[in-house]
């Protein structure tokens, strides 16, 4: 476990900024307790300072996980967000997409969101914008990237993909062994 280097931190922040924009400040500068980002075995954990200090005394091979896993660095140094970061993304998301009940299961099985399943979408969502996907009862299901801007969606046919899936809650079952 170690703090992130400057480049790593920049990679994490720029990825997070796709979804929550300037709200990252609320993750870094919290009122309740000091939280920090720590890297352990290529995974980035968002962890409170007190539990980080507790984890220091655990030897590296014995430390399985700590705090909330936000994602991992690939071998080529790119950062990939995991579904476990959804709690924080959903809390601070700038752009949201709601899917209809008949679209929930297809999304949770790892499919993209098609227009037929789209319930609501934040107005003026641009193209290629990171969005958090909710069910109609406001339960966050995952996150993805928009394929079209809100304006362009009107002309599309019902089978057209609107949101490319990046992560969904179904990964908790599908990728249980490698997720955390």
């Amino acid at each position: 476990m170690r703090p992130l280097t400057e480049e790593e931190q920049a990679a994490v922040f720029s990825k997070l900024a796709n979804y929550i924009g300037k709200n990252i400040v609320h993750l870094v500068d919290r009122n309740d307790e000091a939280y920090c980002f720590r890297l352990h075995r290529d995974r980035v954990y968002y962890v409170s300072e007190s539990s980080m200090r507790l984890a220091i005394s655990v030897a590296r091979p014995n430390l399985v996980s700590l705090g909330t896993c936000f994602g991992k660095f690939s071998k080529s140094g790119k950062f990939k967000l995991h579904i476990t970061a959804l709690d924080y993304l959903a809390q601070y998301a700038k752009y949201k997409v709601w899917v209809k009940p008949n679209g929930e299961m297809p999304f949770l099985y790892g499919n993209h969101v098609v227009k037929a399943h789209l319930g609501r979408i934040t107005e003026d969502t641009p193209e290629h914008q990171g969005v958090v996907v909710y069910s109609m009862r406001d339960i966050p299901l995952g996150f993805g990237v928009t394929a079209r801007s809100t304006v362009d969606t009107r002309k599309l046919d019902p089978t057209a993909i609107l949101v490319y899936r990046q992560a969904d809650a179904g990964e908790y079952l599908r990728d249980e062994d490698t997720l955390f």
């Binding site: 931190q9 920049a10 922040f13 870094v28």
Partner: peptide
């Protein structure tokens, strides 16, 4: 740590 993070931001 907070200061460095905010600087990077």
């Amino acid at each position: 740590e907070k200061k460095t993070s905010l600087a990077i931001l």
